[in-house]
């Protein structure tokens, strides 16, 4: 098989907070093929956003990558210079939709200014020496707004961000990120700020455009239900680690990790009649005080002695299906029935 579009290998990252080291990503390994949609899910704080930011090298200053590589079309992005990232990768090959739309746009510039600036950069990086007028990019900006379903884009384009709702800001971001030249879209909770009907619309838009342009998508969400419709592959994260990863059908059909099983059981659509809604007891542990052994063991109803002592490695338990549970690895496929 040809090389994958994206290969993240052994990526390990700490946040350094006044002497406290928080391992936000721990030996992350996965690949993403051209045109594929990889859904990333997990509870809050498990490192989903950090992963996206690490790929584009937009991490805050307190973050430090300890090891690993991010191969994109064969080159390790972590080895590129800032200039190369700017000229070749960011906003060009890889775009990102950020999680918090409220603060993602500059409050003191019009939407028009922010979008045309970006469109101009994209154009000049693609066609060096291009000298198009502002009006050209403005039209393009209006097109993008129309594409994401903003009503009256001709007038709206000259608004300031504070005149837009959170959902509309998110659409602006999506409009900026969905460009035909892009190879990889990092969508971090792209639709969380939207209401349910619009969420479905926007997700369809992302999927359709991605399919049309052949864009691969890393689709981060805390909502596994959405992934049932959108994703090809699923990755379940917990406290900086991958717990389970595989084709959507395999993972949804027969989850190999108790954590994934619990997440699936807590989906309202999957609730069996007469049973109470599952919510996993306890909390995600703070990253600088992870429990020994399997970091999930204090919350896992299946935990045994061995779980408190050994760290479960991420292992290929079936072809293309990876899981990090000791009991699953020792005894083979189990039915992780939480309720």
């Amino acid at each position: 098989m040809s090389e994958p579009l994206l290969e993240v290998s052994n990526l390990t990252l700490d946040y350094n907070l006044g002497g406290r080291k928080m391992r936000a990503l721990d030996r992350i390994n996965f690949t993403l093929e051209k045109g594929e949609v990889l859904g990333v899910a997990g509870e809050s704080g498990c490192g989903k956003s950090t992963l996206g930011l690490a790929i584009l090298r937009l991490l805050p200053r307190v973050a430090e990558i300890r090891r690993g590589a991010v191969f994109f079309k064969g080159t390790d992005l972590l080895k590129l210079s800032e200039e190369q990232m700017e000229l070749e990768i960011r906003g060009q090959e890889i775009t990102m939709i950020f999680q918090n739309p409220q603060n993602a746009l500059n409050p003191v510039f019009k939407i028009e200014t922010q979008m045309t600036d970006i469109l101009r950069v994209q154009d000049r990086n693609q066609n060096p020496g291009s000298r198009k007028r502002h009006q050209h990019y403005r039209k393009q900006a209006i097109e993008r707004l129309k594409l994401t379903g903003i009503a009256d884009p001709e007038a709206r384009v000259s608004n300031y961000p504070f005149e837009f709702s959170g959902g509309m800001k998110q659409r602006v971001m999506i409009g900026m990120a969905l460009s035909s030249g892009t190879s990889l879209l990092l969508a971090d909770e792209a639709t969380t700020a939207l209401d349910v009907t619009i969420e479905a619309q926007i997700n369809k838009l992302i999927i359709d455009l991605a399919a049309e342009y052949g864009i691969s998508v890393l689709y981060v969400t805390h909502n596994l239900g959405v992934l049932a419709e959108m994703a090809d592959k699923i990755m379940i994260m917990y406290a900086g680690r991958i717990f389970e990863m595989g084709e959507k059908e395999m993972l949804f059909g027969s989850p190999r990790h108790p954590y994934s099983a619990a997440l699936l059981e807590s989906l309202p659509s999957r609730q069996k009649k007469g049973r109470r809604l599952l919510s996993i007891p306890g909390f995600v542990p703070p990253l600088d005080r992870l429990p020994k052994g399997c970091s999930f063991h204090p919350r896992c109803v299946f935990a045994e002695d061995i779980c408190r002592k050994q760290v479960p490695p991420l292992t290929e338990v079936a072809s293309g299906h990876w899981s990090a549970c000791l009991l699953d690895q020792k005894r083979g496929r189990q039915k992780w029935q939480w309720t």
Partner: peptide
């Protein structure tokens, strides 16, 4: 400089 909207601009390669 640490604000989210500056990160957005960087993500889209607006020159430093």
């Amino acid at each position: 400089l640490d604000a989210d909207y500056i990160r957005t601009a960087r993500a889209f390669a607006v020159p430093g």
